[in-house]
Write a protein that binds this DNA or RNA. Structure first.
Lengths: 232, 232
DNA sequence: GTCTATAGCTGGATAGAC
DNA sequence: GTCTATCCAGCTATAGAC
């Protein structure tokens, strides 16, 4: 009965993290005070210092934990699509990468708070966060870039990286700036609906990724416009 | 000699706006104090109150001005591609929309500060900014969405809006989060290089936009999966 | 582990001289 | 228009009682 993630009987530490995640995602880092967080959590503000060493430590803890969950969900989906040694299709790789970031639902109220937090930090506290991002995602990203490359032998490694970058843009913007398109479409396009978003995003990305290589002179093999076959 | 945009002989007001744009883009809204801005501009901090009514007024002024420039550059490029009543191609429409946001070079040090500021505000001060975005971009966006739709008669209006949304994501993320991919590629993919970015982005987007409609049941005309032809 | 109380700082705004 | 000086709110962090 004293298991780690008990919902009804949360420790103050857990309450703080939960409230922090929620409020940071909603109002940014500087937009929320330690008092706000403590108040929302129903605990004393001094505990932030006690448990996390300060506001920044709390943020790092929240971010790192959430990153871990997202990373694991992605990895698990990719593993499912790779079951029995089969090579996942482009759609499947994209789906494994995208789905968990659209609906980090499985974990309580996590929602799409992570991209939110990430974008907030990129804006407000980039120096602190750049390390966290690298620590938490570089390895995972490399795995997905590799998987994408396997599906797209006609592309150079740089092409794949560029398109992976564009993919990240669509995800982050979907999570952080859904208002514009919702307004422009008078509510008919809703990026906060994961199913609807995926239905539009996946075909868009599949086509984009499948486009011919854009590398100047295509240096896939020596030079010339070496097309197809090779690599690993 | 007293023309409005004099570079050597700037008014305090202009100096403040220039410094504010620079610093907001670099360190966010809450990350910069009025004193910082005034100091960078070499003028007295009290002038922020005098000219702009406060920090927030200064921000709104900077943002609105920069939006206007971007909007005009886009409109001009689109007009050039539409010269003589010709209908611009998909590539041309995309290029007209994208180019100015990658290199707001024409105007002094403007650089890519606008998406930066925008993303920062979306994170920190969304309530204030949502109005500014709508005021400054909704009209322009509709023009481009319409132009895109003309190139893509096989898509529903919603499809076009969704893809426009994804397009925005790639642009914003390129401007605000270039570090990840630069690190992952060990410097070989550099999103802060407009030419390189365009070379990769345009083919990606052209393919993505050209993909078949993703609308469920494609409600382009009544129902069924009505493909192609119709619309206006 | 949890609380109260407060120290110590920083920032936005502004009154009023020039 | 521009400056100095200052007020006051709000924050983080922490010392120390329980």
């Amino acid at each position: 009965m004293k298991s780690e993630a008990n919902q009804v009987d949360q420790t103050s530490r857990e309450k703080l993290m939960k409230s922090a995640e929620h409020l940071f995602a909603e109002r940014g880092y500087d937009g929320v005070s330690v008092r706000d967080i403590a108040n929302d959590a129903g605990v004393n503000s001094a505990l932030v210092g006690y448990y996390f060493g300060g506001k920044e430590g709390l943020l790092a803890e929240v971010y790192t934990q959430r990153c871990g969950l997202l990373r694991d969900e992605r990895a698990q989906l990719l593993a499912e699509y790779s079951a029995g040694g089969k090579t996942p299709s482009l759609e499947e790789v994209l789906e494994a990468f995208i789905t968990p970031s659209l609906e980090s639902a499985r974990n309580g109220e996590g929602r799409r708070s992570l991209p939110h937090i990430r974008s907030i930090l990129a804006a407000e506290n980039s120096s602190l966060l750049e390390k966290l991002v690298a620590e938490n995602f570089d390895e995972s990203s490399k795995i997905f870039v590799k998987a994408l490359g396997k599906c797209l032998p006609h592309l150079t490694h740089e092409d794949v990286l560029w398109r992976f970058h564009f993919l990240l843009g669509t995800i982050y913007y979907t999570a952080t700036g859904p208002h514009r398109i919702k307004a422009l479409s008078r509510g008919r396009c809703d990026p906060s609906d994961p199913a609807a978003t995926k239905e539009e995003l996946i075909p868009f990305l599949v086509a984009g990724f499948t486009a011919p290589s854009a590398a100047k002179g295509n240096k896939r093999r020596g030079r010339g416009r070496g097309n197809g076959t090779v690599k690993s």
